[in-house]
Simulated assay, not measured.
Amino acid sequence: MGHTVLATPLGDVALHRLGTPATGAPRTPVLLLHANPGDSRDYGAVAAGLAAEREVFALDWPGYGRSTVTAPHSVTPEGLADVAERALDAIAREGAPRVHVVGSSVGGWVAVRLAERRPAQVAGIVLVDPAGFTRLTPLTRWFCRAVMGRPSRAGRLVAPLARAYLGRLRTSSARATYERARGVGAGAGRLAVHCALWRAFAAPGFGLTGVLPGIVPPVLLLWGRRDPLLPALTDGRRARRSLPPGATYATLPAAHEAYNERPDLFLARVRPFLTG
């Protein structure tokens, strides 16, 4: 356990090593990318299960966890993708030229961008209710920009929204994730990052519908059937229709973060994919 600091234009970003295989030869490592808000600890319920077979790394996005942020109002998904590319390079310097990437929500959006930009380094991607498939309408643009993108409003809504998308808080990891989300409104820097990303979700070029079909690395798409934020019947359906040939899709009885709410089912789907 430990972390490396990566210098980026957005701040000093923490790349955590969450675990190494207990026995046997190391397999292709996995890089975990969390949602907004959150940090690497959100994967606490599944990190040990993944680390039983391979090295596990996780990023804290700028302004979250142990990462600093220089200009919180300027953080964008594209900026997060640049940070994640630096993480791939750091992992490669440790002797792992290829990495599986697991991304949740905006982390899923970044995982797709990594597979698009660095197909030789990305062995496969696991997308957990990824952002980028919401239909942009006047209502969704208003919600992203004027509600969740405005600190005076978002500060009051972060906690209740997290309580909804985390589902039943059935695990200690989910409860801890919720408590961290409750604290986002109290930190000006973290709240500014949270709002900047929400505003970026309304940008015309944010969608993934036209990008995902061209992805070369293997893809596993997981969607929570009870996700109130990115519903399976709308966003999940559009994502499934956009999958490249040979991709795998499954729904899980969970809300937005199945790895938090149902780590057993999450691992049952993800571990065979990573091994295969």
Rank of each mutant, 00 (worst) to 15 (best):
H194N: 00
W223D: 07
P231N: 11
R225H: 05
P244A: 11
R237M: 14
L191F: 10
L191T: 08
F201T: 01
G207D: 04
V219G: 14
C195S: 11
P213S: 05
A200L: 00
D227P: 12
N260G: 07
L212C: 02
A255F: 04
L208A: 06
V219K: 13
A196R: 03
H194C: 03
G246Y: 08
T234L: 13
F201Y: 00
V211R: 10
W223M: 06
L243C: 14
L229D: 08
R199K: 00
R238I: 15
R225L: 01
L191A: 07
N260L: 03
A192P: 13
V219R: 10
P253S: 01
L229M: 09
W223V: 05
R199L: 01
D235E: 15
G246M: 05
L220N: 02
L243G: 12
I215C: 04
L197N: 00
A247D: 06
Y249D: 03
T251R: 07
H256A: 03
G224P: 08
T251E: 03
L191P: 13
R226D: 02
A255Y: 01
R226S: 04
A254W: 12
L243K: 11
H256T: 07
T234E: 15
A250S: 10
L230E: 10
H256Y: 05
T209P: 10
L212P: 02
V211D: 05
A203Y: 04
P204V: 02
A255I: 02
P204S: 09
P244E: 08
R238G: 10
L197H: 01
L197G: 01
R238C: 13
P245H: 00
G246A: 07
L212V: 08
R241I: 10
S242P: 03
G224A: 06
S242F: 03
H256S: 07
A203C: 01
G214R: 07
F206D: 02
A196I: 06
A192Y: 13
A239L: 04
A200E: 03
G224W: 07
Y259A: 03
L252G: 07
P231E: 15
A200F: 00
V216C: 05
L230Y: 11
V219C: 10
L221K: 14
L208R: 07
G210P: 08
L222I: 09
D235S: 15
W223C: 09
A202W: 11
F206Y: 06
R237A: 13
V211W: 06
L252I: 06
T234H: 15
P213H: 00
L230K: 10
T209K: 11
R238D: 14
T209Q: 12
V211Q: 11
F206S: 01
V193I: 08
R226Y: 03
